[in-house]
Design a binder for these strands. Structure first.
Lengths: 232, 232
DNA sequence: CGTCAGGTTGACGTCTATCAACTACGGTGG
DNA sequence: CCACCGTAGTTGATAGACGTCAACCTGACG
């Protein structure tokens, strides 16, 4: 029911929430009229410190949300998939950057409008509250990964979480709309370690790697065991 | 203005929010009537999976919020100080454990009551939304630490964040109401690494360590540089 | 066919975990 | 009063996991 990033034992998409299940009802009408915006890969929706004018909903593609340090180190906080909302944080400025990982379409709503509605519509306000509390749960799960899990465990947890995105739970074929660099910066690993770990999982017969962007999950049980530290 | 855990460049307490600045006005009246509950060190308020019956406000002491893996690895998500709220997540069950790090007092409010009020009071609902979005920002900052920063950088960022708790900004004497083990599990380090890093900071003349629970910040500029990766 | 971004693999280095010994402190009880 | 014990913290030696540097491969695209 929740929307955690790296919680393989639970049943949640990796960030934000599935529109059909959790979208604030009070937002539906607003979205229908909103114009579609198209982004090329690597194009930004907004960057940290920008005035927080809109909230966005991903229609197609995928968005990475990330923070970056002065020396270039980057931490991806999550990936937003179609149906996910972006920019819910209640503050004057965006607190992170949002960038398309591939060709992406999204809709935007003026925050001022949402805020006005919410001031007279407790239902809507509570929906915002619920939506963001799902994001918090996702952040907490990712925190458990980056803080405590080994590289193998992190990648296993990541693949499990990804296998549960996009509706059908525990899909055999998982599509990864992001690069190895993105995965690395999400999990707190380097490109090389991510690549090596994928290879190890393939050698163990747990996954298949037809193309690098498409993973076949062959043994989901093993993946779950690994993610929970069943064996190091 | 925000409440981030490890964002030394910004000015926020480590988790939750300062009551006098951010507490939902609609909650004030509720709290005044609530009974005080006293907890010994290591006593739990609730554990993961418990029915989410109350939200709590810390009055004295400190609470650690943590997740734990089957094999005992623990990730502390944050520390709640006096004025901070606990258990805001919008779901049926608590998603983490809450445990006193020392003798602590807190007040609790039945969630059902808050929820009922919020359904008719958009102001209150929006306050909940704002409160939890601050927690999300805190989680994101911690994520940047555990995912990207070195041990030295993490401890520097942690000390900076702690120096900004408790009202007076950039206090020279910082009190740490948690053990080295707690700090380690918060930052994704071991006790030994935390201890060694404190020693290194002392040898560098950046902090003073009279007692292990009380840190004197001697050179806050150096701490900031370290936290942002100024020099590795 | 050349170029470039993305991905894989190998050799090596290093940061931090692990294992272990030791100190300091506080409480408890003889 | 002091011996004893448990918890917390520090420090040292060692090992291992992951990062770094580098070569190479692949596929897309002009």
């Amino acid at each position: 029911m929740l929307t955690n990033a790296l919680s393989p034992a639970q049943s949640m998409p990796a960030r934000g929430f599935r529109a059909e299940e959790f979208e604030p009802h009070g937002l539906d009408e607003h979205w229908s009229g909103a114009p579609v915006r198209r982004l090329e890969a690597k194009e930004h929706i907004f960057t940290e410190g920008d005035q927080r004018t809109h909230i966005y909903r991903v229609e197609k593609g995928a968005i990475s949300l990330y923070k970056i340090m002065p020396d270039g180190r980057r931490q991806i906080l999550g990936f937003a998939y179609p149906g996910d909302l972006i920019g819910l944080g209640a503050c004057e400025e965006y607190k992170f950057n949002a960038q398309a990982t591939k060709l992406t379409e999204l809709k935007g709503l003026r925050w001022a409008a949402i805020q006005n509605s919410a001031r007279h519509d407790p239902e809507l306000a509570l929906k915002l509250y619920e939506a963001i509390s799902l994001e918090l749960a996702a952040a907490h799960d990712l925190l458990l990964s980056t803080g405590q899990r080994s590289a193998l465990e992190r990648v296993a947890a990541f693949l499990l979480a990804m296998s549960r995105r996009g509706g059908g739970r525990d899909r055999v074929v998982v599509n990864l709309p992001m690069t190895r660099a993105d995965i690395g910066d999400f999990l707190g690993l380097t490109i090389e370690t991510v690549s090596r770990t994928f290879t190890k999982l393939r050698q163990l017969g747990i996954i298949g790697l037809a193309q690098s962007a498409s993973v076949h999950v062959l043994d989901i049980g093993a993946l779950q065991e690994l993610a929970e530290g069943g064996r190091a």
